[in-house]
């Protein structure tokens, strides 16, 4: 009996050891803009304020929408850092690049008293689907920092198609949509 138990344990351990370890890939969302570029401040000083993501995006997994409408989270393809954090950095750099001015993400500790306009962003949808489409739905607003009045408020909806298979292509497509989104905001900033 004792031999039998030991034999089962050994077999189990051998079996576990024999299972190949899954390969997990992580993707970092970063802008390729030059971080050291010196941007000329315009008349109005603009700051990136709140950047929020939908609850289903507040997760390390990349998301894919299936044919039945369900959302599939990848287990082996993850964001390297929470999307809410990386989006703040990404959008800040893209906006600075596209507007030609330094737009920093305002932290919770900044008073913002030197800021005249604040950009707030809400990402509602950012995922691919089974047909190879990638979709970005986001709302954004410009808020006067002194009076806290909304100067402008719009929704951005855009889709693009995957040119290649794989999650790397999905991340690249999502970056293209975010760049397009940044361009629209930059074009609307007060001069």
């Amino acid at each position: 009996m004792r031999k039998l138990f030991l034999s089962l344990l050994v077999v189990s351990l051998v079996a576990c050891a024999g299972t190949p370890a899954p390969v997990v890939k992580q993707y970092l969302l970063r802008s390729d803009s030059d971080e050291t570029a010196m941007y000329q401040d315009k008349i109005a000083d603009v700051t990136l304020g709140k950047v929020s993501v939908a609850a289903y995006l507040d997760h390390p997994s990349l998301v894919l929408q299936l044919a039945d409408g369900s959302m599939s989270r990848a287990h082996h393809h993850l964001w390297a850092e929470p999307l809410r954090e990386s989006l703040r950095i990404y959008m800040s750099r893209e906006l600075s690049k596209r507007s030609g001015r330094s737009i920093r993400a305002k932290s919770n500790h900044q008073s913002g008293r030197y800021t005249t306009t604040t950009i707030n962003i809400d990402i509602d949808e950012l995922h691919g689907d089974y047909l190879g489409n990638v979709r970005l739905v986001a709302g954004w607003s410009l808020v006067d920092s002194d009076s806290q009045t909304i100067l402008k408020e719009q929704y951005f909806v855009s889709e693009t198609k995957l040119t290649q298979d794989g999650f790397g292509a999905l991340v690249a497509a999502e970056e293209r949509l975010l760049q397009e989104f940044s361009q629209e905001i930059a074009d609307s900033l007060p001069r």
């Binding site: 299936l66 089974y130 190879g132 995957l162 999650f167």
Partner: peptide, 11 residues
């Protein structure tokens, strides 16, 4: 663990 569904390029 089921393998992740790999996104396919659009036709």
């Amino acid at each position: 663990v089921n393998p992740d569904i790999v996104p396919k390029a659009a036709p």
